[in-house]
Design a protein around this nucleic acid. Structure first.
Length: 492
RNA sequence: CGGGAGGUAGUUCAGCCCGGUAGAAUACUUGGUUUGGGACCAAGGGGUCGCAGGUUCGAAUCCUGUCCUCCCGACCA
C-alpha cells in the first residue's frame, strides 16, 4: 500500500501532513492557503462544534449570524484592532465581471463596477457586531447581551499549514456586552474555563490557562486570556482565547446604556473564540507513526467491527452475532460501524481504521464464534484482548471511557514533564534547544525584554498562568527583579 | 514576501540533461481463487504531462510568464 506515514522522528512536519491527508481529515485546494475539510474531518468538527455549542447555551449564550463583509469605515473604527489585522485582510473592491474584449471566452473585472466603499472580508467580527449592538442596547435591561456565532473568517496568511493556519478557517466567536467591568471580566474568565473544560475533557488535551502579555494580546483587548497546549514536538499551541475588551469597542462604536439611576455609560465587552485549529492540535497531541489517535468522546467513529470469514456462510453466521451487538451498542449511544464490505480483507481494514484513529476495533471470526468471544483492540495502546461476547457492549462502553482518561493522562504526563524551571540564560537556551516544551522563567515584565528574548531564541511568552505562584527572582535576560515565573515556548 | 524543492494515470513516481508524440507500481473495472495484520491470477479501462504563451517540421522534454503545493525563513491575536 502507498499509504505510508512519514515517522515523527524523520520529519515531524511531514508526519503531520501525512496524518491529515491520509487520515482523510482534509485536502489541499486550488485556492492558495485554503483547504477542503473532508467528510471525516468535518464529522470531527461537527462533534466538537455540537459539544461546544451546548456548553455555550448552558452558560446562557444564544447563536446569531452576522455578515461576512465589513465596510472599511466600520472596520477601521477601533484603531488598534484594525491595525492588528490590517496586514492580513482580503478586500472586495468590485462587484461585477464582464467578458474580456481582448481574450474571447475569458472574464475580467469590470472597471466600472468598482465599489464606492471597499468591503473587508471579516478576519474577526467585532466591528460589524458592535456596529449592530449599538442599535440593540439602550438600557441596562438589554444587558448582558450574550451572543455567539459559528462562522468562517479569512486572514491572509503568508505561510499556511493544514488546520493550524489557513487563510480561511471555521470558528465560533462569542461577543458579549455587560453593564459592569467586573461582570465582563467574569464572563471572559468563565469562557476560558469552558474552553479548558472542553479541550481537556473532550479532546483529552491538557491545557494551561493563563493571561497573555501585552505583546501577545489581541489587538483592541485590555486583557487576553488563553489556553495553551503542548504538542509532541515540544512546541506550544494556542488552543483558544478569551478577551476582556474593556470599553474599547463600545467607545469606538458608541454603544451606551442607561443604568438604573439613568446615568449613561459605555458597555463592557468580551469576545472569545476557538477554531478548526483545535483539530490540528488534536492530531499533534495524540497521534503516532501509524496514524491518527482520536479521543473516544469526539471521534466520528468510536468502534469498528471487522468480520473475518471464509465464504458467505461464515459471514452470515458472524453477522448474526454482530447484528444484536450492533443494535445494543447503538442504543448505548456509541458510534459504531460494522464493516462487512467484501472488497477489502481484514488486514487492510485494520490498517485503515488505525490510520483514521478509531479508538476501538472489534474483530470477530469463525474461531471466536465457536468460543463466544471477540478480539478487542485499542488504538491508543495498540493492545489486543479476547473478550466474551456476553456483556461485550458494556465492556466496550467502559473501555471507551478508560481510553479517554488514559489519553488525557498520557498527554498530561508528557506536558508536565516538559515544563522546566530555569534560572539562568544558558539554561534557558539549552532547555529550549534540547528538551523543548514550556520553560518557566523569571521575566522583568517589560515588552522590550520579551522582544529581545524572542529575537534571540524564537521563544515567546505563551502565558502568565492563572493563579500563578508568586516567587522572588531575577529576570533571566536583564537580571532585574521579578515576582513570578512566566511560561516561554516556541510556538505554532 | 525571500531561499530551496516539486506539479506527468485516482495515488506514489520514472521519463526531461541529449526534443521524435508517454511508462511502472498501486488503485479502478470484470471473472476466478482467497480472507486472523494492507491477498493472488488473468483480462481490461484510464493521462490535451498544472495552466498560458514562445522556439521548432515536431515539445512532458528547451525558453518566458503564471497558478498551486511542500520545506526553511520573514510575517502572524
Amino acid at each position: 500500500m502507498s499509504k505510508e506515514i512519514t515517522s515523527r522522528e524523520k520529519d515531524y512536519s511531514q508526519w503531520y501532513n501525512d496524518l491529515v491527508l491520509k487520515g482523510s481529515l482534509a485536502d489541499y485546494s486550488a485556492v492558495r492557503g485554503c483547504m477542503v475539510i473532508k467528510p471525516y474531518g468535518y464529522a470531527l468538527w461537527e462533534n466538537m462544534r455540537d459539544v461546544l455549542d451546548k456548553m455555550f447555551k448552558d452558560t446562557g449564550h444564544v447563536n446569531a449570524y452576522f455578515p461576512l463583509f465589513v465596510p472599511k469605515s466600520l472596520f477601521e473604527a477601533e484603531e488598534k484592532n484594525a491595525e492588528g489585522f490590517a496586514k492580513e485582510c482580503a478586500i472586495v473592491t468590485h462587484y461585477r465581471l464582464k467578458n474580456d474584449p481582448n481574450k474571447p471566452g475569458k472574464l475580467m473585472v469590470d472597471p466600472e463596477a468598482k465599489l464606492e466603499e471597499e468591503l473587508i472580508v471579516r478576519p474577526t467580527s467585532e466591528a460589524i457586531i458592535w456596529n449592530t449592538y449599538k442599535g440593540w442596547i439602550q438600557s441596562y435591561r438589554d444587558l448582558p447581551l450574550l451572543i455567539n456565532q459559528w462562522a468562517n473568517v479569512v486572514r491572509w496568511e503568508m505561510r499556511t499549514r493544514l488546520f493550524l493556519r489557513t487563510a480561511e478557517f471555521l470558528w465560533q466567536e462569542g461577543h458579549t456586552a455587560h453593564a459592569t467591568k467586573e461582570e465582563a471580566i467574569i464572563e471572559t474568565e468563565k469562557m476560558l474555563h469552558v474552553y479548558a473544560d472542553f479541550v481537556e475533557n473532550w479532546m483529552a488535551v491538557p491545557v494551561i490557562k493563563g493571561v497573555k502579555t501585552a505583546n501577545e494580546r489581541f489587538a483592541g483587548a485590555e486583557d487576553t486570556y488563553c489556553i495553551e497546549a503542548l504538542m509532541q514536538d515540544g512546541k506550544a499551541l494556542q488552543a483558544g482565547t478569551s478577551h476582556f475588551l474593556g470599553q474599547n469597542f463600545a467607545k469606538a462604536f458608541d454603544v451606551k446604556f442607561s443604568d438604573k439611576t439613568n446615568k449613561l455609560d459605555y458597555v463592557w465587552a468580551t469576545s472569545w473564540g476557538v477554531s478548526t485549529r483545535l483539530i490540528g492540535g488534536l492530531v499533534m497531541a495524540h497521534s503516532d507513526d501509524d496514524g491518527l489517535i482520536l479521543p473516544p468522546r469526539i471521534a466520528p467513529l468510536q468502534v469498528v467491527i471487522v468480520p473475518i470469514y471464509k465464504g458467505d456462510e461464515e459471514k452470515a453466521m458472524i453477522s448474526n452475532t454482530v447484528e444484536p451487538l450492533l443494535k445494543e451498542l447503538k442504543e448505548m449511544g456509541i458510534r459504531v460501524k460494522y464493516d462487512d464490505n467484501d472488497n477489502n480483507r481484514p488486514g487492510w481494514k485494520f490498517a485503515e481504521y488505525e490510520m483514521k484513529g478509531v479508538p476501538v476495533r472489534i474483530a470477530i471470526g469463525a474461531r471466536d464464534l465457536a468460543n463466544k468471544v471477540v478480539e478487542v483492540a485499542r488504538r491508543d495502546t495498540k493492545t489486543k484482548l479476547t473478550v466474551d461476547v456476553n456483556g461485550l457492549s458494556l465492556y466496550v462502553k467502559e473501555l471507551l471511557e478508560e481510553i479517554q482518561v488514559q489519553m488525557f493522562n498520557k498527554a498530561k504526563a508528557y506536558r508536565d514533564e516538559h515544563i522546566t524551571k530555569v534560572d539562568s540564560w544558558d539554561e534557558f537556551v539549552h532547555v529550549l534547544d534540547t528538551k523543548t516544551g514550556f520553560v518557566a522563567a523569571h521575566w522583568d515584565g517589560t515588552p522590550e525584554t520579551e522582544e529581545v528574548i524572542k529575537e534571540k531564541t524564537k521563544a515567546t511568552i505563551r502565558c502568565i498562568p492563572l493563579n500563578n505562584e508568586q516567587e522572588e527572582g531575577v529576570c533571566i535576560l536583564s537580571g532585574k527583579p521579578s515576582k513570578e515565573r512566566v511560561l516561554f515556548a516556541r510556538a505554532y
